[in-house]
Nucleic acid binder design. Structure first.
Length: 262
DNA sequence: AGCACTGTTGGATA
DNA sequence: ATATCCAACAGTGC
């Protein structure tokens, strides 16, 4: 589920494993995920480089290299990272493999191939060109959040998921945040009060932080979270009513109608 | 067989 | 300028 918390978990994982290591060999197993250049160029740009640091913005992970360029990873709906000590086991959908001088390796695995991989010369220029709003966790205080949403038309769930407004929140976490804030996903932003927005922002930050501390693993989420119960008709963990599935902005949306109004 | 799924993009439309 | 809707990308799982 690569939304902000998942990507943050990938960042920590990378930091604890591959960071500081020098790339000896690059295997591009599927060049169709590579944007802004060819597989050959990516391989050449990564070879002999050392991974210096890893940062995140929204759902994007950026890995700084020792020559100033950066490897950008986006995970689409199904991507993940896997680090192997010693011999590399088969991962079924590995699209990019970095083998380090140590003999260990890092695999970017992306079954549905909806992810993106690219090498950029200038990370700051890349972020600017990307039309991303501020990071939902790092880039916004409650006034900033309020300012972004004020005067906006449309539904609150769509706004939370709009990456050019604020980035990192996707379909699953927008549902979780709105469930915990007790707000209906179809609520019109224009009809929300200052207090609603303040409460929503606080809830968003709390949910994202807690999800990160749980390794974004639904199996570890508290009893009263919605995410592990994304199924029509399953009992609401708070009121025992039934979880409902509706469509909002063309995406499947789960909510508890009695907890979240109407 | 058919449909749903954690995401992004581009184009048409309002 | 904002927002919505749709199709496309591609693979897996129920």
């Amino acid at each position: 589920m690569p939304e902000l918390p998942d990507v943050e978990v990938f960042r920590s994982y990378l930091q604890a494993t591959a960071l500081g290591q020098k790339v000896r060999n690059v295997e591009v197993r599927d060049a169709s995920l590579i944007k802004g250049g060819s597989g050959r160029e990516l391989a050449r740009g990564l070879a002999e480089r050392t991974l210096r640091s890893a940062s995140r913005r929204g759902k994007y992970l950026a890995v700084d290299l020792d020559n100033g360029s950066a490897l950008i990873l986006h995970f689409g709906m199904t991507g993940r990272l896997k680090y192997f000590r010693g011999s590399m086991r088969d991962t079924r959908h590995d699209r990019l493999r970095l083998v380090f001088q140590s003999g260990h390796s890092l695999v970017y695995d992306c079954p549905r191939k909806l992810g993106q991989v690219r090498l950029v010369k200038d990370l700051q220029a890349f972020w600017q060109a990307m039309d991303l709003g501020p990071d939902a966790l790092e880039g916004l205080d409650s006034d900033g959040f309020n300012g972004l949403l004020r005067g906006r038309r449309g539904m609150i769930k769509s706004a939370l998921m709009n990456q050019s407004l604020l980035c990192g929140v996707g379909n699953v976490y927008s549902d979780e945040i709105l469930f915990q804030a007790r707000l209906h996903p179809r609520r019109l932003v224009r009809e929300m009060t200052e207090h609603d927005l303040l409460h929503l922002h606080a809830t968003m930050v709390r949910v994202l932080k807690q999800a990160i501390s749980l390794q974004a693993d639904p199996d570890r989420m508290p009893e009263d979270w919605l995410t592990p119960r994304r199924e029509q008709g399953t009992p609401c963990p708070v009121c025992q009513g039934k979880v409902q599935r509706i469509e909002v902005g063309g995406r499947g949306c789960f909510l508890c109608p009695s907890c979240q109004g109407e």
